[in-house]
Amino acid sequence: MEAVFAILVGLFFAAGIYLMLSRHIIRILLGVVLFGNAVNLLIFTNGRIIREVPPIIAEGLDVPAGAVVNPLPQALILTAIVISFCFFCFLLVLAYRAYQEIGTDDTDSMRVAEPVDDGLPPMGY
């Protein structure tokens, strides 16, 4: 079962990275989302996979009856999902505002902070 997940994770990574290598911020943004999902699935799979038994202790018991899914990766991923959503929102708004101000979505043309040809720094003291 893990093997299938491993291949799926690889696919997510490849797609995410391919998109992030692009020069358009929107594609990079989509890539970041895929990348985040890939990482979450990676953690999920690392905790091993069992079908359909959520880590919830039945009423009246003190410990789970029988084997349950590993709860630790789930806790990590839950926070990771929310954080990556925040990250996504921030990037999206950043891209949107950059597009409004600079008028392009091509990262090669976004050179406000790193101009193509800024001369030598001041040589005096």
Partner: peptide, 12 residues
Amino acid sequence: HNEPGGGFTGGL
């Protein structure tokens, strides 16, 4: 605390 759910999900 006892069933699936919680602050993050509810908040969303």
